[in-house]
Nucleic acid binder design. Structure first.
Lengths: 240, 240
DNA sequence: TACTGATGAATTGTATACAATCTATTAATC
DNA sequence: GATTAATAGATTGTATACAATTCATCAGTA
């Protein structure tokens, strides 16, 4: 079993792998807002040079999941209250449009729904196993899969950046713990979609998003959660 | 007057400048879909190394304005008919949402409208001067400015990638020449927005987009316009 | 002539070297 | 002791070197 001599052939998938690893870490809230993303450390972790890491970080930065501070490097984004409102607002707009499109296409994508039910099944399992990180990530993936079924790639791409940003917002501003009813909401939403009931699906999605937002404390004072910003200091939350 | 010793200080603006130069060239349809974007050539043109060019190209690729073909380099994107429909569909969704938001905020952003009227004025001028490229670009910028006034940065960013993509679609699929009524449409739209008449503004925006799409030939056979793809060949449309 | 295969130039993909900048530590001054 | 200045170490930003791949040219063959 000879290793491929070329280091380039894997490049595309290698890139994608590193990206997804960081992406998932953010979805699962293992990577906290404000965490420093040191290039050399990441390079060692994934066994590539800074060149590759830099490309990944720049992709994350473009999706507003990370931010570059000039000469200081990349950090996991910390959306402030105003950012959060805009992100959630944009996401609602997108999700409702997506749900409508999926409902319209319901009859022609029947086979795809099966996968989504399986995803919900997994959500249940990890929720039951108290594997919170995985449960959160799967929840996000449910929404991403829905976006894919909309059949509109630009929309899918846009939601792909809004979902992890939402994850960061939840990390920063969630006040009440999420009752896991969200999973049942997914499943009822999917039922409505399969029947092609756009109106019901949109209502359910709207309520689903309401519930997520209800758990957040997005009043201005909530900004105080971000102590570093309040005191104008910079804190590296991950050194290694 | 001493030059700044550092080559890094300008980096952020330098980057932005190169990006905008290419962005504008695409908006003005000086850069045609399928054009090869050779790294070294661009580097020489802008006096920077491939590193910087590569970053710019990767940004354009992320916005789907350029595409990377592995080991072959970057090319100006050539959205096919299916892509085009999805892009236009997404854009309609965005533009209507944006118009609604701007109408809602009309009273609190009165001073901003002035700039937009000036932009329309410029559009008139370049149109009168038969400066088609500039006219097209300014038309795109009008929509981008509107997006900015929506007060939603994610939406603004998303439209920022949809506008040049629309430009590529027009380049590829426009069958009838655009009557320059579009400028008057901008101006009537702006009137409605200033009055905060969301319903009217949305109707006008919808019609505006209809008119753009009316001039396109997006039936399946339209794909034949892209001869290179029909014959499975690759053609470099710009060598230098 | 048309087709295949080999050779070399051109171009991309990645790693690395080096310069600019920032950060932390220590020394110096009041 | 607190504040500022200076220095060394760490990290980012850019250019460049080198390897891998593609592309064009041109023999060779039927």
């Amino acid at each position: 079993m000879v290793e491929p001599k070329s280091t380039r052939q894997k490049s595309k998938t290698q890139d994608q792998h590193i990206y997804e690893e960081i992406f998932d870490a953010i979805l699962e809230q293992r990577l906290w807002p404000g965490t420093r993303l040191k290039e050399e450390s990441l390079g060692e972790i994934f066994g590539v040079s800074r060149t590759i890491i830099r490309r990944t970080l720049s992709r994350l930065a473009h999706e507003r999941v990370a931010v570059f501070e000039p000469n200081r490097g990349a950090f996991v984004a910390e959306p402030d209250v105003s950012d959060a409102r805009q992100i959630l607002d944009a996401r609602r707009l997108m999700e409702l449009a997506i749900v409508e499109k999926v409902a319209e296409r319901a009859s022609s994508i029947k086979s795809e729904f099966k996968k989504l039910y399986e995803l919900i099944e997994q959500e249940h399992k990890s929720s039951a196993a108290a594997d919170k990180g995985t449960a959160i990530r799967l929840s996000g993936e449910f929404h991403l899969q829905l976006a894919r079924l909309s059949g509109n790639k630009p929309l899918e791409g846009f939601l792909h950046s809004l979902v992890p940003q939402t994850s960061l917002i939840i990390a920063l501003y969630q006040s009440k713990e999420g009752s896991r009813c969200a999973i049942d909401e997914h499943s009822r939403l999917l039922d409505a979609l399969k029947l092609g009931d756009a109106a019901l699906a949109k209502r359910l999605m709207g309520e689903h998003l309401d519930h997520i937002e209800d758990r957040l404390a997005l009043d201005e004072s909530a900004g105080n959660r971000n102590l570093a910003k309040v005191f104008g200091r910079r804190v590296d939350k991950a050194g290694a």
